[in-house]
């Protein structure tokens, strides 16, 4: 009844042997990313005792647990904002450099070393006998060592050390995508540097800023090793990932741990969606100039 063979029809829709090459990767991600996530979601509704929502009730009924959301936000939001606000002017200057590669290479080092090494380094460096406190006393900024580890500031500074390079490199890739001739045109018409930045560059940069802010925030919100090693994991820096880890590997309550992981994911998604929604309110369009 149909003259066209099914193989050919599939081919016309882009499905043939080559498309099948995608299948192993899809199968792998479904098996090891999607399935565990769904499994965790179901497991979180199957608590060790009590009704199906018992884990969530326990989380939002116990300040020791629900406070971890605020604690994490209290560390992650300032760190993300500081990193972003410092990255923008630096990226604007680096854009004018002829050979920025050395600088970007140096900045990639803390990202590559990872949070565990940064934590160990900062424990030495910021400690009461570390070089930083020595320098502060030497220059008579303080007369006794400032406490910078095993509290909020240790975790905050570790998020700056690994987060600033990450944020900067992302911002830099967006800044270099803006056509310099647009700014030159502004300068020709008499706009000074601040006006050129706020009236020309910033509006074009907003979409990139939103993506960067989302990615940096999500990274900072999932802070784990440095909150344990550099912070005070029992109190001021008991972040949400510590609560999830303790539920899973200290109390062996995988159901509760999955519930906390799901709450963590929901907070991250909520903030990213809010940011992306806010992006819709501002200019969207090409960041290049043209004859018009």
């Amino acid at each position: 009844m149909n003259a066209v063979p099914w193989r050919l029809r599939l081919q016309n829709r882009g499905l043939d042997g080559v498309t099948l090459l995608v299948l192993p990767a899809v199968g792998f991600i479904v098996a090891l990313f999607v399935y565990p996530f769904l499994y965790g979601l179901f497991l979180s509704f199957a608590p060790m005792q009590g009704p199906w929502f018992a884990n969530y009730k326990k989380f939002f009924g116990d300040p020791f647990l629900y406070d971890t959301i605020l604690t994490t936000l209290w560390i992650a939001v300032p760190a993300t904002l500081v990193n972003l606000l410092v990255s923008i002017p630096v990226a604007m200057r680096v854009r004018l450099m002829a050979h920025p590669r050395l600088l970007t290479t140096i900045l990639v080092i803390p990202i590559t070393l990872g949070t565990v090494l940064v934590a160990e380094g900062l424990l030495n460096y910021l400690g009461p006998r570390g070089w930083l406190n020595r320098a502060l006393i030497f220059f008579a900024v303080t007369d006794s060592p400032t406490r910078l580890v095993h509290n909020y500031w240790g975790v905050f500074l570790s998020l700056v050390i690994t987060g600033f390079p990450f944020t900067f490199l992302l911002i830099q890739s967006y800044v270099t995508g803006i056509d310099p001739s647009l700014e030159r045109a502004g300068a020709m018409l008499g706009a000074r540097a601040p006006a050129r930045f706020f009236r020309i560059v910033l509006p074009l940069l907003v979409p990139g800023l939103v993506i960067t802010l989302s990615l940096s925030f999500v990274q900072a919100f999932s802070v784990f090793p440095s909150a344990v090693l550099l912070g005070a994991p029992a109190g001021p820096t008991r972040v949400i990932s510590i609560a999830a880890y303790q539920a899973a590997f200290e109390q062996y309550d995988y159901s509760m741990a999955s519930a906390i992981a799901m709450i963590m994911a929901v907070v991250q998604v909520a903030i990213v969606v809010a940011l992306l929604g806010a992006r819709g309110l501002v200019y969207r369009g090409p960041a290049t100039g043209g004859k018009g």
Binding site: P36, L41, V218, Y254, M264
Partner: peptide, 12 residues
């Protein structure tokens, strides 16, 4: 982030 999906993944 890895810690978010890592816990359900480790459970599985």
């Amino acid at each position: 982030p890895p810690i978010t999906y890592g816990i359900p993944l480790a459970t599985v």
